[in-house]
Amino acid sequence: MGKMVLFSAVRGTVLHEGKPVAGATIEREFEWAWKSETGRDSTTTDANGAFALPDITRKSLFGSLLPHEPLVKQSITINHAGKSYKAWVLFKRDYDENGELDGRPIVLTCRLEAEPQRRGEVFGICELS
Protein backbone atom coordinates (compact mmCIF):
# COMPACT_ATOMS: atom_id res chain seq x y z
CA MET A 1 0.00 0.00 0.00
CA GLY A 2 1.37 3.37 -0.99
CA LYS A 3 1.36 6.32 1.44
CA MET A 4 -0.36 9.31 -0.09
CA VAL A 5 0.08 12.72 1.51
CA LEU A 6 -3.09 14.70 0.83
CA PHE A 7 -2.03 17.72 2.90
CA SER A 8 1.46 18.11 4.33
CA ALA A 9 2.04 19.28 7.90
CA VAL A 10 1.52 23.01 8.34
CA ARG A 11 3.07 25.38 10.88
CA GLY A 12 2.44 29.07 11.07
CA THR A 13 1.89 32.29 12.92
CA VAL A 14 -1.11 34.61 12.75
CA LEU A 15 -0.45 38.32 13.18
CA HIS A 16 -2.54 41.48 13.07
CA GLU A 17 -0.58 44.68 12.50
CA GLY A 18 2.57 42.90 13.69
CA LYS A 19 1.09 41.54 16.92
CA PRO A 20 0.37 37.85 17.59
CA VAL A 21 -3.28 36.80 17.39
CA ALA A 22 -4.16 34.38 20.19
CA GLY A 23 -7.29 32.23 20.03
CA ALA A 24 -7.85 32.34 16.26
CA THR A 25 -9.37 29.16 14.83
CA ILE A 26 -7.47 27.61 11.94
CA GLU A 27 -9.71 25.39 9.77
CA ARG A 28 -8.07 23.15 7.19
CA GLU A 29 -10.06 21.33 4.49
CA PHE A 30 -9.30 19.04 1.58
CA GLU A 31 -11.17 17.49 -1.35
CA TRP A 32 -9.47 14.39 -2.80
CA ALA A 33 -10.64 13.76 -6.36
CA TRP A 34 -9.41 10.11 -6.59
CA LYS A 35 -11.65 8.86 -3.76
CA SER A 36 -14.21 11.69 -3.80
CA GLU A 37 -13.27 12.20 -0.16
CA THR A 38 -13.48 15.41 1.81
CA GLY A 39 -12.13 16.14 5.25
CA ARG A 40 -11.37 18.85 7.71
CA ASP A 41 -9.56 19.49 10.94
CA SER A 42 -8.83 22.54 13.04
CA THR A 43 -6.68 24.02 15.75
CA THR A 44 -6.39 27.27 17.69
CA THR A 45 -3.49 29.72 17.81
CA ASP A 46 -1.57 29.97 21.08
CA ALA A 47 -0.58 33.14 22.97
CA ASN A 48 2.19 33.75 20.41
CA GLY A 49 -0.20 33.38 17.46
CA ALA A 50 1.42 30.06 16.54
CA PHE A 51 -0.38 26.97 15.21
CA ALA A 52 0.51 23.55 13.85
CA LEU A 53 -1.42 20.84 12.02
CA PRO A 54 -0.09 17.35 11.25
CA ASP A 55 0.00 15.87 7.77
CA ILE A 56 -3.10 14.17 6.38
CA THR A 57 -2.28 10.85 4.75
CA ARG A 58 -4.11 7.93 3.24
CA LYS A 59 -3.06 4.54 1.96
CA SER A 60 -4.46 3.08 -1.21
CA LEU A 61 -3.38 -0.06 -3.01
CA PHE A 62 -5.25 0.86 -6.20
CA GLY A 63 -4.22 4.52 -5.96
CA SER A 64 -0.56 3.52 -5.80
CA LEU A 65 -0.87 1.05 -8.71
CA LEU A 66 -3.41 2.50 -11.12
CA PRO A 67 -2.38 5.47 -13.21
CA HIS A 68 -4.30 8.63 -12.40
CA GLU A 69 -3.65 12.33 -12.04
CA PRO A 70 -3.43 13.23 -8.34
CA LEU A 71 -5.62 16.20 -7.45
CA VAL A 72 -6.33 17.46 -3.95
CA LYS A 73 -7.97 20.84 -3.38
CA GLN A 74 -6.58 22.30 -0.17
CA SER A 75 -7.74 25.28 1.84
CA ILE A 76 -7.03 26.92 5.17
CA THR A 77 -9.36 29.51 6.67
CA ILE A 78 -8.60 31.64 9.72
CA ASN A 79 -11.57 32.68 11.86
CA HIS A 80 -11.08 35.49 14.34
CA ALA A 81 -13.28 38.17 15.91
CA GLY A 82 -16.27 37.23 13.76
CA LYS A 83 -14.38 37.40 10.46
CA SER A 84 -13.08 34.71 8.11
CA TYR A 85 -9.79 35.06 6.23
CA LYS A 86 -8.81 32.88 3.27
CA ALA A 87 -5.29 31.90 4.27
CA TRP A 88 -4.34 29.16 1.77
CA VAL A 89 -5.91 27.73 -1.39
CA LEU A 90 -3.94 25.29 -3.53
CA PHE A 91 -4.57 22.40 -5.90
CA LYS A 92 -2.00 19.74 -4.94
CA ARG A 93 -1.06 17.56 -7.91
CA ASP A 94 1.07 14.88 -6.25
CA TYR A 95 1.10 12.69 -3.13
CA ASP A 96 4.60 13.63 -1.98
CA GLU A 97 5.35 14.90 1.50
CA ASN A 98 5.80 18.67 1.16
CA GLY A 99 4.91 18.35 -2.53
CA GLU A 100 2.92 21.59 -2.28
CA LEU A 101 6.13 23.63 -2.23
CA ASP A 102 8.47 21.36 -4.20
CA GLY A 103 9.85 19.68 -1.07
CA ARG A 104 9.92 22.65 1.30
CA PRO A 105 7.87 22.38 4.51
CA ILE A 106 4.77 24.57 4.79
CA VAL A 107 5.65 27.34 7.25
CA LEU A 108 3.38 30.38 7.03
CA THR A 109 3.13 33.91 8.35
CA CYS A 110 -0.48 35.06 8.05
CA ARG A 111 -1.27 38.76 8.39
CA LEU A 112 -4.97 39.43 8.93
CA GLU A 113 -4.72 42.94 7.47
CA ALA A 114 -3.25 41.61 4.19
CA GLU A 115 -5.27 41.38 1.00
CA PRO A 116 -5.48 37.83 -0.38
CA GLN A 117 -3.25 37.38 -3.39
CA ARG A 118 -1.62 34.69 -5.49
CA ARG A 119 1.94 33.76 -4.58
CA GLY A 120 3.02 31.19 -7.13
CA GLU A 121 0.41 28.42 -7.04
CA VAL A 122 -0.92 29.47 -3.60
CA PHE A 123 -3.70 32.02 -3.04
CA GLY A 124 -4.44 33.69 0.30
CA ILE A 125 -3.21 36.10 2.95
CA CYS A 126 -0.29 33.97 4.15
CA GLU A 127 3.32 34.38 3.13
CA LEU A 128 5.79 31.53 3.04
CA SER A 129 8.33 31.81 5.85
Rank of each mutant, 00 (worst) to 15 (best):
G2H: 05
G2T: 05
K3L: 15
L6A: 10
S8G: 12
A9T: 00
V10K: 10
V10E: 04
R11K: 15
G12N: 12
T13L: 08
H16C: 13
E17V: 04
G18T: 12
G18Y: 08
K19H: 13
V21R: 01
V21H: 04
A22Y: 03
G23T: 05
T25Q: 15
T25S: 13
R28S: 11
R28H: 02
E29S: 14
W32L: 06
W34G: 00
S36P: 00
T38I: 08
D41F: 12
S42I: 02
T45A: 11
N48G: 12
N48Y: 03
G49L: 05
A50C: 02
A52Q: 03
A52K: 05
A52M: 00
A52S: 11
P54F: 01
R58L: 11
G63P: 08
H68W: 13
E69W: 03
E69I: 01
L71F: 12
V72W: 01
S75C: 14
I76N: 02
I76Q: 08
T77K: 09
I78W: 08
I78M: 07
N79Q: 14
N79C: 13
H80M: 09
A81R: 13
A81T: 07
S84E: 14
F91K: 14
K92N: 06
Y95I: 03
G99R: 01
E100W: 04
L101W: 07
L101G: 02
G103V: 10
G103T: 07
I106Q: 11
R111W: 02
L112V: 12
E113D: 15
E115W: 07
E115Q: 15
P116Q: 07
Q117I: 03
R119C: 04
V122P: 03
G124H: 09
E127V: 09
S129G: 09
